[in-house]
Design a protein around this nucleic acid. Sequence first.
DNA 1: GCCGTTTTCGGCCCGACTGTTTTCAGTCG
Length: 627
Amino acid sequence: MSHVETAVDTTNPELDAVAVEQDAALLTNGQLARMFHEIGDMLEVKGELVYKTVAYHRAADAIAHSPVEVAEAYRAGNPPRIPGVGAAISDKLAELAQTGRLQFYERLRTEVPPTLVEMLDLPGLGPRTVKLLYETLGIENVEALRDAAERGLLRDVKGLSARTEESILQAIATLETRPQRLLLNQANAIVDQVIGDLEGTPGLRRVEKAGSLRRWQETIGDLDLLAETDDPDALIERFVGLAAVDRVLNRGSYKAAIKLLRGPQVDLMVMPPGEAGTYEIHFTGNKDHNVRLRGRARDRGWSLSEKGYMRLGEDGEPLAGPNAELRTFATEGEAYAFLDLPFIEPELRQDRGEIEAALAGTLPTLVTLADLNGDCHTHSDRTDGVHTVEQMAEAGRRRGYAYQVLTDHSQSLAIARGLNAERVEEERELVGLLNQKFAREEEQGTAPPGTPPEGFRLLFGCELEIRADGQLDFPDELLARYDVVVASLHVGRRQPRVELTRRVMNALRNPNVDIIAHPAGRYIQRREDLDLDWDAVFAEAARTGTLLEMNGSPHRLDLSDHRARRAVAAGCTLTIDSDAHRIEELDYMRWGVSQARRAWVTPELVANTWSRAKLLDWVARKPERVS
DNA sequence: GCCGTTTTCGGCCCGACTGTTTTCAGTCG
């Protein structure tokens, strides 16, 4: 607990000031990862050996996903073992941890203009071409490239043509109008639309989602579709001719890619009927997961591609001609089994230990939507919601929940018309009346079908503001009257880490606070995470049994999968909530569940898979744990 | 640059599509 105490200790302000100054030079895992990715990019442009550049990118990813703060650990003289980080990169990390700088990186930046690396963002333009353009025409940024292309200078470079000029100008235009990555729910809606448009194509047996959407990643770049069809030509024809197509990026016999009008790129791959297994694996990814599978296949004498497993000869090449041997499978389960692996859930396919767990027989049984018995975070029109308390409760009841917690905002969040003590009392009475009605209907057998045996109850809660001064927005006497208190932080988000952490700690230690909602306070692609001492927060949440929310709003998905995994490792228990402000948003639960699955979360770790009695008992016992 | 229960050196995952070419390199996923 000592680091926890240190982080919130205010008795010696001078000590705090020293700590903050040291922290200033400590790079976060994210910053380290960005730097090593950039190094990888610069080495690519320099024309370095491809495997060297890959090594830097791989190390960057591993650092980004590391459960420990890497720079902090190095500074403490306690460098963690990170897969993909060997002697050379480890030395660089040590230098960064000590000095906050890296000479190798700074020298590289003088050799390779940073704007050169930005040119790699242009679709179709890779490191070789960037290098070629730099060396022949001295082009070192996108502006110069556009200028040269417009003036017809590129066609004189060996290996390029007038056509290349055109496609480069096209790529620049694409980059400038490129939409942000899609949120999960947006991507899903677009894909459903495209799948609907493809239905009825002659020969088509089925179309399914693949790629990052099938892994339920929190944001989606390109969309991937797989199709089983007896007539590939007809399908490709239909696909590239869809009304929503802006332009066709490429088109072959088995695959095609389109860019949708004001929308993302969509890739379609055709699978021969009955051979979906390896295709689904290949196109669901992610890349690192696939590389691991191919390595394992190769160790066993087979080459794995989307087409199936091909027997390798003694030269390490697939056998050809009459000796060729190809194994295909109808399902992913069979294709995994060929490698003596069990089926691995798509959400886990990120090469974050799932292969090892599969081999050890320790893959988790992931939480599902059906496991949830309630929703601990919902709003009504009495604060910033859209539907009435009754409408929201009725909708929750019809979902088959045993409980739903009404968590309208507390008084200080004026922007959301937060409730004062008087309106809190009104709301309590309203909740009581509704519950009487629900109980009556259950007794009379007129409750909606699907109502669980323990019946449905609307639990009385609030979303309690953790104010900028660190105080909670209601006094303890009032808080003690709630069934469930959900605390969250919306204001004073830019305070320094020590201050922010102290505020959250104060909420965690309050005997009446049961859940911390959207702990990182992020809005995906719009607002950064709160700068908290996460290890301290997780340790205290675990000690006090305060539940940490996985917020299902596709804008939040907070905790993130990485953080949730760390929280669980630290002994925390979670909730998965919709944070619904209208009836339809109760469906946000599905995105929260997918995020939890990506974090390896099992049902028992999620408090709202519990019965109502168990949940209420858990929160009632918090005072014992805090003391 | 990383890595090793075959290896401390010599490997490192795979194929489609595109464009500029006559046999392939670059890019992408």
